[in-house]
Measured scan of single mutants.
Amino acid sequence: TEELDSELELPAGWEKIEDPVYGIYYVDHINRKTQYENPVLEAKRKKQLE
């Protein structure tokens, strides 16, 4: 659920942004990119696909 997503600790260099226009998204300051999917959940999903 969304509530559990926010409890996950983000990897180093990541920041969660709550924007009133664009909603919640994540900033990867190391690689200078943004995405809507939580990077922790993304990594778990990719691992399940292997």
Rank of each mutant, 00 (worst) to 15 (best):
T1R: 15
I17Q: 00
W14I: 15
G23C: 00
E15K: 05
D5T: 15
Q48G: 08
E18R: 03
T1V: 11
V40L: 13
V27T: 07
V21F: 14
T1A: 03
N38Q: 04
E50T: 09
Q35A: 07
P11H: 02
T34N: 07
N38S: 12
W14N: 14
G13H: 02
L41A: 14
A12L: 13
G23V: 00
K47Q: 14
L4C: 02
G23P: 00
K46L: 10
T34I: 03
Y22F: 10
K33W: 05
Y36D: 06
N38R: 11
Q48N: 15
S6A: 13
N38I: 02
E37V: 06
T34D: 04
K47S: 14
N38M: 10
L4Q: 12
E9A: 15
R32G: 13
L41E: 12
K47H: 09
I17F: 07
E3A: 04
E15L: 02
R32A: 07
V40Q: 04
V27E: 08
L49R: 11
Q48I: 15
L8S: 08
G13M: 03
A12H: 15
Y36N: 09
S6K: 10
E7P: 08
P39G: 04
Y22T: 09
K44N: 10
I30F: 08
D28K: 01
L8K: 15
A12W: 11
W14T: 07
D28F: 00
L41R: 13
E9C: 10
Q48H: 11
K46G: 11
L10W: 02
L4H: 15
H29C: 03
P39F: 00
D28S: 01
V27F: 07
D5A: 14
K33N: 09
E7H: 08
K16C: 07
R45D: 09
Q35G: 03
E18D: 10
L49E: 15
I24F: 14
E9V: 10
L4A: 11
D19P: 00
E37S: 09
Q48F: 05
Y26F: 10
A12Q: 07
Y36T: 12
R45N: 05
N31P: 01
Y36K: 12
I17K: 14
E50I: 06
L49A: 13
I30C: 06
A12M: 02
Y36L: 12
Y25H: 09
V40F: 04
N31W: 00
R45Y: 06
I17W: 06
D5W: 06
L4E: 07
Q35L: 04
K16T: 03
W14L: 00
